[in-house]
Simulated scan of single mutants.
Amino acid sequence: MASALPLPDSFLCFLEENGLDPSIYSIESSIPRYIRLKPGCEIELSSLEEELGCNLEGVVWLKGFFAIPPHVRISGSDAYRNGKIYGMDAASGAAVLALNVLPGDHVLDLCAAPGAKLCMISDLLGGLGTVTGVDVIRHRLTSCRTIVLKYSLGDCCRLFLADGTSFSVPPPASSDTQLSQSAESAEVFEGWSSKRTRRERRMARKSMVAPPTDEPELIFYGRSAGVVGRRREEIFRSLTDVDISGYDKVLVDSECTHDGSVKHLRKFDQWGWDTLQRRVLDASRTDGLDQLQLKLLSNGFRLLKTGGSLVYSTCSLTVTQNEDVVRRFLAENSSAELKDVEWAEDWPCTSGKIPKTLRFDPATSRTSGLFIAKITKRASHHDKS
């Protein structure tokens, strides 16, 4: 069966090289769009259906998510403008749910853009704990900031412009953490303001991408994100310099070729398929992509506390970017252990090519494609001694 999308020869070649059947894209027009309803807005379901002009079909295996026809646009609705709903694929919601975020957790979203997962994490925290979002592209991270502010989910959130492969800022320090005294003139963070400092404006002009050797740039923080009232040295201390336990949960939704994302591929039908070749399939980008993914996964694991949980995911269907990356990571990290994903037996997904990993795909799941691996950190022999 041919694909409904006019896939170019270069993409068909990519699929063939990776053992992927083009027919999985033949049902793209029948895959619904998914939205997440902000908690507390359930009583408005009937009025939301009337406003959007369609039924909201509850996703039985994923609380708070609803399926709507793919042609329905939510951006013009009052519900969207007022922050009651946001678009998010159900498979992406499953990746967040796999983390088992609990109120009070300190969560790291190492590849935070475009921000929907960040919003869901904030929802699950329920105002307790913190979520730290990191991205290397400035305009993508500012979009995250816009989203968390729009949905009033930024109170426990902080956002860093930084390279996820080297990011080293630990979770917010507890209030009783004692650090060395600074000079009276040391900078103390007050409440965040949209008015940027001269230093921030200079850095914004300097580059749209965070240089890997520069100190991370804090571009947003909420009142309860562990920043207000703290000195710069308390926030920007390094994991390698301070004895800290790390983050409770880490999400590494890694950069990938997006070949499993139906929504992403639909955009190229509008932008022109030559754009796909330039942005996704160009050898200068794909060569070494698996190495980037391994570095992101490895650094996320380094920032995870002992006993914590990490989820590695991509919206690619290839083995190279998924199982192969996980295999290499496990071979290099004796304290890492793959874990079963709670609730997965009720999810419309299949097993990956490594036990305990999961795969969503358009044909099986009626979602975009997504790979999920859940990893925990065991105590090392050194820790036990």
Rank of each mutant, 00 (worst) to 15 (best):
D163A: 08
D163R: 04
A210D: 11
M203E: 12
R198M: 07
R199N: 14
V188Q: 09
F167L: 02
A204C: 09
S175Y: 00
T177E: 03
R196W: 08
P211N: 13
P212N: 13
D176T: 02
A183V: 12
S193W: 01
A173Y: 03
S207M: 09
S207K: 11
R201Q: 04
S175W: 02
E200M: 06
E190P: 11
A183S: 13
F167H: 10
A210C: 14
S174I: 00
M203Q: 15
D176G: 00
S166P: 10
M208L: 12
P172C: 03
P170N: 02
R196L: 07
T177S: 04
E190Q: 10
F189D: 03
T165I: 00
P170I: 06
R205L: 09
R196Y: 06
E184L: 04
E187I: 11
P170D: 08
E184H: 07
A186G: 09
V209G: 03
R198D: 09
M208C: 09
D163W: 11
R198C: 10
Q178I: 09
Q178C: 06
L179N: 10
S194E: 05
P211G: 11
T197D: 08
R205E: 13
A186T: 09
S185H: 04
E187Q: 12
S175G: 04
E190A: 05
P212F: 15
S182V: 13
P172N: 03
S207R: 12
A204F: 04
T165S: 06
R196H: 04
K206S: 14
